[in-house]
Structure formats: structure tokens, C-alpha cells
Amino acid sequence: MKWLKRIFDFYLDASIHVAFAVYALVQISFQTLNIFSDQHLSFFVFFGSISCYNFIKYGVEAEKYILVANDYQKGIQFLSFIAAAIAIYHGSFLSFEVWIGIIGLVLLTGLYSLPVLPKSKNLRSLGGLKIFIVALVWAGTTVLLPILAAEEVLSWDVGLELTQRFILVFILLIPFEIRDLAYDSKELNTLPQYYGVTKTKIFGGFAILLLFFMTFLKDELSVEELILKGFLFLILGIVLFITKRKQSKYFASFWVEAIPIFWFALSIAIERLFITSLEVALSF
């Protein structure tokens, strides 16, 4: 069974799991906003997330990323290069407008991870900004890029979905921030460091309420979306409630990151249920 655990750990360490989460959020945007599903963008985001996340985790110092010490990291490095090549292939089919959005997000990611500021190593090292930058990049990637790919306008509903996605990622990052209390430098000034675990969870609870009730402000609101947001409201509330400083190894890295994947799977199930119910109704 050790080889199964090793494969599972590689799946997490090589950022495949988080890439599936990003991919799932892109698909949800296609469904929720009722826009054209661009599969080249979907695959670009999936494979690009693998290479990008692995570079942030392991390759901030380029020398260490090229001169890898062990076979395990070499495997992650090899996967990252293959994923980058596949992402570039799919990226070649994307429009100029989408690439403008991608470049903007890449620059923001670079400022987040690379030492480009004179008095700070990167934006990540600036107190309190870490969680907001990550949420902004995820929201832009999973909502703004699909809108640009579908050549849709930035309507009121799109703005609401973009804001909700930012809030969602912000909430999902809270368990990670609490988990990393023992490892993060005090200079980061993360929410749990500044406000404490209890107040951070209360703040996250208010964010969950805001995320759900913003749904009712949409001009076009379907029953399916309302049900999905309701399930998301419950899942996020439960996860935030059970989050502790001392977590199991896979609580945040697997279960929390799996929430967008479960959400997407649920959206497919509900969509098929509604289609089946409609077909049954029409048959009478």
C-alpha cells in the first residue's frame, strides 16, 4: 500500500489536485454564466496551473529548480515541463484578448512570488496581502478568462460572479492560513496571525453569508444555481467550523482543495437531473 500513498502524495505535491480545482471552477463559470465552453482555455488553465504552481512552490530560485537534488523532485520537474508544453499548445488557439488577460495574471503571479520589490522579497512578503492576491488571481483565471474567451461583455452578473469567486477562494484559503500558523513568518501578517484563529473563522463565516446572499442580486438567476450555491454555503460553513490549527495531513491540501471539484460534480448531477425531469414531463 505504500506505493498507493506515494502516488497520492505525488498527485498532491505535483499540483495536479489544485489544477483540477481550477479546471472545475472554469467549467462552473461556463455553466453559471451560460457562455461558450472553450476547451482550449480549459486545458490551458489545467496544465498551466500545474507548471505555474510547481514553479511557485519549488522554483522561486531558478537555480534550485534546474539543479534538482532527488528523483522525487525530478519527477515533479519533468511533469511541470510537459504540462507547460501542453499549455503552450492549447494557448496557441486562444485569442489576443485572452492573452492580454493571461499576461496580466502572470505578471500579478510574478509579483507575488518573485523578488522584484526593493524593500520586500515579493508581494507575498507584504503583510496581509498574500490571501487577497491569490484570491484575485484565481478569480481572474476562472471567471475573467472564460468571459474573454467567449467574447462576452462584463455585465452586472459577470461582476457579481467575479466578486463571488474572489470571496470563495478567500474562504478556501483560510484553513491553509490557519494550518500554516506554525510555519509562516510573522512578517506575513496573515489573518490568523493578526486577528487570531477564532476571529478569522468568524470573519470567514460572514464571508460565506455574503457569498450566498449576493446570488440573489443577479439579474438572471436559475434554480440550479441557487441550489448549487446553497450546497456550497453548507459545505463551506462545515469546513470552516471544523478547521483547527492542528490539522490532519490531507485536510487542507486534499479535502479543502477538493471543494470546487465536488461543486462541479454536483453541478453536472443537478443539470442531468433537471434534464431527465424535463424529458419525463414532456413525455406525458
Results as ranks from 00 to 15, higher is better:
Gly230Gln: 14
Ala21Met: 09
Ile100Asp: 12
Arg124Ala: 07
Arg165His: 13
Asp9Ile: 01
Gly127Ile: 06
Ser253Lys: 08
Glu152Ala: 12
Leu67His: 13
Ala258His: 03
Ile275Pro: 00
Ile178Thr: 02
Leu41Arg: 01
Val280Lys: 10
Met214Ser: 11
Gln31Cys: 05
Lys201Gly: 12
Asp71Asn: 15
Phe233Gly: 06
Ala24Arg: 07
Ala258Ile: 07
Leu144Arg: 01
Val197Phe: 05
Leu278Glu: 11
Leu129Asp: 01
Leu136Gly: 02
Phe78Asp: 10
Leu160Trp: 09
Phe274Ile: 10
Ala150Pro: 00
Phe166Asp: 02
Phe55Gln: 12
Leu117Asp: 11
Leu236Cys: 03
Tyr53His: 12
Gln73Gly: 08
Glu97Cys: 08
Lys74Gly: 13
Asn70Val: 12
Ile100Trp: 05
Ala182His: 11
Leu162His: 05
Ile270Arg: 03
Thr142Gly: 10
Lys57Leu: 15
Phe44Val: 06
Leu221Ser: 04
Ala84Arg: 10
Glu225Ala: 09
Val197Met: 06
Leu79Gly: 03
Gly128Trp: 04
Leu273Gly: 10
Thr109Glu: 07
Ser80Gly: 06
Thr215Pro: 00
Trp3Gln: 13
Arg6Cys: 10
His40Lys: 13
His90Gln: 09
Lys121Val: 07
Ile202Val: 15
Leu126Pro: 02
Thr276Glu: 10
Val153Trp: 09
Leu211Asp: 07
Ser95Gln: 06
Ala281Val: 05
Gly59Ile: 14
Leu33Tyr: 07
Leu234Phe: 11
Lys2Asn: 14
Ile35Ala: 03
Thr243Leu: 05
Ser42Tyr: 01
Ile82Pro: 00
Ala252Gly: 06
Val68Lys: 14
Lys130Ile: 00
Lys121His: 09
Leu117Trp: 09
Glu61Arg: 15
Glu220His: 14
Lys229Ile: 12
Asn34Trp: 10
Phe132Lys: 01
Val143Pro: 02
Arg6His: 12
Ser29Asp: 03
Phe251Gln: 05
Ala85His: 08
Leu79Trp: 07
Leu94Ile: 09
Lys218Val: 02
Trp3Ala: 08
Phe274Asp: 06
Leu108Arg: 04
Tyr72Trp: 12
Arg165Thr: 13
Phe254Leu: 08
Ile261Glu: 00
Glu61Gln: 15
Glu271Lys: 07
Val45Arg: 00
Asp157Gln: 02
Tyr58Asn: 11
Gly91Asn: 02
Ser120Pro: 02
Tyr250Ile: 07
Leu25Asp: 01
Ser113Arg: 04
Thr190Ile: 08
Glu63Leu: 10
Lys130His: 03
Thr276Asn: 09
Ala62Glu: 15
Ile238Tyr: 10
Leu191Trp: 09
Val223His: 14
Leu226Thr: 05
Ser253Pro: 04
Lys218Thr: 05
Gly159Pro: 05
Arg165Leu: 11
Leu67Phe: 14
Leu162Thr: 10
Leu123His: 00
Trp263Val: 00
Thr141Cys: 11
Leu228Glu: 01
Leu209Cys: 14
Phe55Gly: 12
Arg124Glu: 07
Ile82Phe: 08
Val223Thr: 15
Phe254Ser: 07
Trp3Pro: 05
Gln73Asn: 15
Ile7Asp: 11
Ile66Arg: 15
Ile102His: 01
Asn70Ser: 13
